[in-house]
Amino acid sequence: MQYIYRYFTLSHGFARKVKKFARDGPEQLLVIADFDRTLTPYYKPRRGPKAPLEQESSSHGLLMSSSVVHPQVRVGERELFARFYPVEMSPVLSESEKLPFMEQWYDKAHGLLVEHALTKAQVKEAVELGGLTFRPGFHSLLKLLETREVPTLVFSAGIYDVIHAALEKEFKAERKRNGDASSGQQTYTPGNVHVVSNMMRFDAQGRLQGFDGTTIHSLNKSARVLLDSPFWKKGQLEKRHNVLLLGDSRGDVRMAEGLKTDEIIRVGFLNVHVEEALEEYLELYDVVLTHDASLASVEMLIEQFAAASAKEEAH
C-alpha cells in the first residue's frame, strides 16, 4: 500500500489547513465523500491468492447487471460500459471532450431502466443479492464520524436508491457481525450520514417513471445541489467551514463548489493509471492515496484534528 502526500512547499498550504482543522476541531468539520470507488474499492477482495482481480460494481452497475432486471437491461449495460467507461477514465481526454459522452451514457442508462419497467422491489432485491463491498477502514471511519457528530454527505453520480439500500444492508450486517441481532430497528445508517445522488421517481404501483432533478454525473458534481436540501438546512451545515473531501475522479475535486468554506482538504484515491495520472492528481488533491488504499489514513487525519482540538481546550 502506498501513500503519497502532497505538501504545498511554497505556501505551506496543506500544513496550514491541517493546523486550522485541528484548531477548530470536529465541531467545524463537514465530510463530503464520493461513493463509487471512494467509499467502495476499485477491485473486489480476491477470492484466493491466485484469483484474478475483479472490478467492483458501481451503484449503476450493481443494479443494471443484476439478474432481477430485464435481460435487455443487462445487455445494454454491458454495451454502454464498454463504450463509455474508457472515456470517463481516460487520462488524456479533457473534461470538455468527455462531457457529451457522460451525458449520453447517463441518458441511455436511465432510459433503459424506464423502458423496461424497473420496479422499486427489484431495486431492493438487486442490492440484497449483490455483493457490493466497502473499502477497508469504512466502518471504523464512519463510526468515528458518528461519534464525533460530523455531518457526512455521500455525494454520488450513482443512483440514490441503490446507495441508500446498500448502506442500510452494510450497516445492518456490521451490527450483526458485532453481535447486535436487534431486528426491530427501522434504519441502520447513522443519522449523520446523508446521500445526495440521482433519485428514482416511481408511480403508485412502484414502477420507475424517471429520475428527479438534474442528472448528476461525474463531471457536474458540485455542492450547489446540496444547499436547498432538508438535511443541509436541518443540520445548519452552513456553520461548518472546514470541509474534508474524499473522491477518486478529477470531477470530484469540485464537490464542495458553491459552499462558503474557510478551508478544504481534498483526499484523492488514484486507483488506476497511477503513473499516467499521478502528477495531475497531485495538483488536484492535497493527499493522494494510490493502488486501492484503505480509509485508515483518513481516519488518522480526523483523529489528529480531534486530539489537537481536545488538547487545546484542556489548556
Rank of each mutant, 00 (worst) to 15 (best):
Y5G: 02
Y7F: 11
T9R: 09
L10S: 14
K17H: 10
K17C: 13
A22Q: 10
D24G: 00
G25V: 02
E27L: 02
L29D: 06
L30S: 07
I32C: 02
D36Y: 08
R37D: 05
R37M: 05
P45N: 01
A51C: 15
P52C: 04
P52K: 08
E54H: 14
Q55R: 15
S57T: 12
H60L: 09
G61Q: 03
M64W: 04
M64Q: 12
S65P: 01
S66Q: 06
V68Q: 06
H70T: 09
P71G: 07
P71S: 08
Q72N: 12
V73D: 10
E77C: 04
L80T: 02
R83N: 01
R83M: 00
V87T: 12
E88P: 05
M89G: 02
M89E: 13
V92P: 00
E95C: 07
E95Y: 09
S96E: 13
K98W: 00
Q104H: 06
W105H: 05
D107G: 12
K108S: 11
K108W: 04
H110C: 10
H110Q: 15
G111C: 05
L113W: 08
V114G: 03
H116K: 12
H116I: 02
A117M: 07
L118Y: 04
T119F: 14
Q122K: 13
V127E: 01
G130T: 06
G131H: 14
R135P: 13
S140P: 00
L141D: 00
L142Q: 06
L144Y: 06
P151G: 07
T152A: 07
L153G: 00
F155L: 02
Y160S: 09
Y160R: 12
I163Q: 05
H164Q: 10
H164S: 04
A166W: 09
E170F: 08
F171W: 11
K172I: 00
K172F: 11
R175P: 01
K176D: 01
K176I: 11
G179Y: 07
D180C: 08
S182Y: 09
S183Q: 13
S183C: 08
S183P: 00
G184L: 07
Y188V: 13
H194K: 15
V195Q: 10
V196M: 07
S197E: 12
S197A: 15
N198A: 05
Q205E: 10
G210M: 08
F211V: 09
T214W: 01
T215L: 06
A223C: 03
K234I: 00
K234L: 00
Q236V: 02
E238N: 11
R240T: 06
R240A: 06
H241E: 12
N242W: 02
N242A: 03
S249F: 09
R250I: 11
D252Y: 02
M255T: 04
G258N: 01
T261W: 01
L270C: 10
H273Y: 05
V274H: 14
E275S: 15
E275N: 15
E276F: 07
V287W: 06
V288F: 11
V288C: 11
T290V: 11
H291V: 12
D292V: 09
A293I: 03
E299H: 09
L301E: 01
I302K: 01
E303C: 03
Q304V: 01
Q304T: 06
F305T: 03
H315M: 08
